[in-house]
Design a protein around this nucleic acid. Structure first.
Lengths: 165, 165
DNA sequence: GAAGATTCGTTGCAAATGCTACGAGGTCAA
DNA sequence: TTGACCTCGTAGCATTTGCAACGAATCTTC
């Protein structure tokens, strides 16, 4: 107690990769989210669902969960709000009535025609900011994300069934 | 309606940097958090406060807010819980009684002596996973984080006052 | 073809989060 | 020294999040 400060291992949070990733993620996500939240009233989970629907067309909650790094309940709630806003429709899947088919409405598509270029522009801004560092960052992220993409040898491989489209 | 799918700009979420950062951050943070949550019952904001206290010694809420990318209220609440758990003490600052001085207790220090090596080990594991890609990732993060560190020309520069130690 | 296990999506509930307003303390200027 | 203004930390409140349990539908196994 008399001793000023004891011998704790030196550790600098500012150099800790998970912390750095968290800060970078929060800032980029929020910087972008501010734009579309203000203009379109869309949240981040909603944005992700919309993007995936624009990309993939007509898809179940389960598919989005697997592809977009969201939990089932996040997708479910985002879809509920989006359906309420008239941006997507939820239809029953014939053949397997547990599944819910999500798809953009005309209104949702119109929205995405404004939203996607905004995201493209933001990606370009990031690329500009990073300059030569871009390649290295993406390579690092590739490496980091690869470890999780397919849990592999655990419980037996899942089969990604492409939506029939 | 009859048309199968309209002409939306092509956009791949999986290649979108903010999304990739968010996923990488969430996964690394949670992988680590699972470890210390299970063993010590500490949350992520609490962990950040503890680390900063181990690093800096005796510091106000305001200092932590500035250095650890947390909001005032996050620090305040984390500190409240940590004090309740007996891991830190909150003392009044003489001279400026608005300030609250946070410091680890002996118990908090003991905890950190277990916790910090765990974080070190995790960082090393990440380094291993990344291999040669590490340098590039860190350079990219440096670049990305630098843009925000000091908001600069906006409202007048803040002065970082070093805690008197 | 019936019981049991699994999968899909949703929801109730408790905890965490974010915003905003607030009170206490401090600073500055007339 | 009084009053306007600022800064520090906290707390109320509404929203969001995460977990876990649930009902419905399907698959499995005998």
């Amino acid at each position: 107690m008399a001793d000023d400060r004891p011998h704790l291992p030196a550790f600098d949070l500012a150099g800790f990769t998970p912390y750095r990733l968290a800060v970078a993620a929060k800032r980029t996500s929020e910087e972008l989210a501010r734009q579309y939240r203000a203009r379109f009233g869309i949240s981040i989970p909603e944005w992700r669902v919309l993007v995936h629907l624009a990309h993939a067309g007509d898809v179940s909650v389960r598919d989005i969960e697997a592809r977009v790094a969201m939990e089932k309940y996040e997708v479910s709630r985002a879809a509920k709000r989006l359906a309420g806003a008239g941006l997507i429709v939820k239809r029953a899947h014939e053949g397997d009535r547990r599944l819910v088919r999500l798809a953009l409405t005309a209104e949702g598509e119109a929205l995405m025609r404004d939203l996607l270029p905004l995201a493209q522009a933001y990606q370009e801004e990031i690329d500009r900011r990073l300059g030569a560092a871009l390649t290295g960052l993406e390579a690092g992220l590739d490496r980091l994300l690869a470890d999780w993409e397919i849990p592999a040898t655990e419980g037996g491989g899942r089969v990604w069934h492409e939506p029939e489209v």
